[in-house]
Structure formats: structure tokens, C-alpha cells
């Protein structure tokens, strides 16, 4: 099930992105996070937004080699099948997929224990529960 955000509480600290990169790659790098928080001043004041997988499954449909599937709770990339063509990246409506070492990279809810939720200090992130589905 997708992540949901209460943006009014977000401070833009990026601890969620750091937790995501640490849990998947054992490094700290917000660029390698599977979610992205935007918290930037602009001419109109401040822009606050989130990017994350909404579980629309478009990537699964467009993948030319069938590398992407889902388990009803998160998307699953078969790295052996993925050819790094980037079709999913270009077609993701939230533009949250990226290629890491030429492999498609999508939120896997940390296997059911979302680290971004665990680390957000302000309680911004939660799971959008769907009937009868548990993380």
C-alpha cells in the first residue's frame, strides 16, 4: 500500500530519505532514496511536496521485459530480468523511479517495515491502509 503524507507537518529535514538510502544501500545519500521530499523557497513563498510510489502499476505495464510485478502491497523489480532501459522511469507519473547501477529502483516498503516512517521526526508519513491488506 502506498505511503501517505501530512505535508503540513513536514520540515524538509530529509531524515526519511537518509533512512531509505541507509536501509537499502548502507550509505547516506538522499539521491538514492525511493521517496523525495521537496521543501524549497521560491518566488511565491515556499513549495512543499512529496514524491513517492502511488502503486498505479504503470511501470509494470510498460516494462518491455516483464521485470516489474507487484504483491498488492509494493512493486517488485526482478533485477536479473531488468535491462536498465529506463522505460519505467520515463512513464512513472510521480517520476520517482530511478536507475541505480542500471537497475530499476522502486519503493519496496522496506519489505514491510518502512524506515522512512520510522525515522520521520514529525509523524508526516504513514501507510494508506487498504481494506484487508496489511503491510
Amino acid at each position: 500500500m502506498p505511503l501517505k503524507f501530512d505535508l503540513s507537518k513536514c520540515t524538509g529535514c530529509k531524515l526519511c530519505q537518509l533512512a531509505c538510502s541507509a536501509s537499502h544501500y548502507q550509505v547516506f545519500n538522499p539521491e538514492k532514496a525511493r521517496l523525495k521530499m521537496i521543501h524549497e523557497y521560491n518566488d511565491d513563498g515556499i513549495r512543499i511536496a512529496s514524491k513517492s510510489c502511488i502503486l498505479c502499476k504503470k511501470c509494470e505495464k510498460v516494462c518491455p521485459v516483464g521485470a516489474i510485478t507487484n504483491n498488492g502491497r509494493w512493486m517488485i523489480v526482478d533485477e536479473d530480468k531488468c535491462i536498465g532501459c529506463g522505460t519505467c522511469v520515463d512513464n512513472c507519473p510521480t517520476r520517482i523511479i530511478f536507475l541505480n547501477n542500471d537497475k530499476s529502483t522502486i519503493c519496496d516498503l522496506c519489505g514491510g517495515d518502512p524506515q522512512c516512517i520510522e525515522w520521520c521526526p514529525k509523524g508526516v508519513i504513514s501507510l494508506r491502509e487498504r481494506k484487508g491488506v496489511k503491510a
Binding site: 524538509g12 529535514c13 515556499i46
Partner: peptide, 9 residues
């Protein structure tokens, strides 16, 4: 709005 520094709780 509130605004935090990088990695700040």
C-alpha cells in the same frame, strides 16, 4: 510553515 535544517529533528 516550520522549516528544518538537513537531518534535523
Amino acid at each position: 510553515n516550520k522549516k528544518g535544517c538537513f537531518s534535523c529533528g
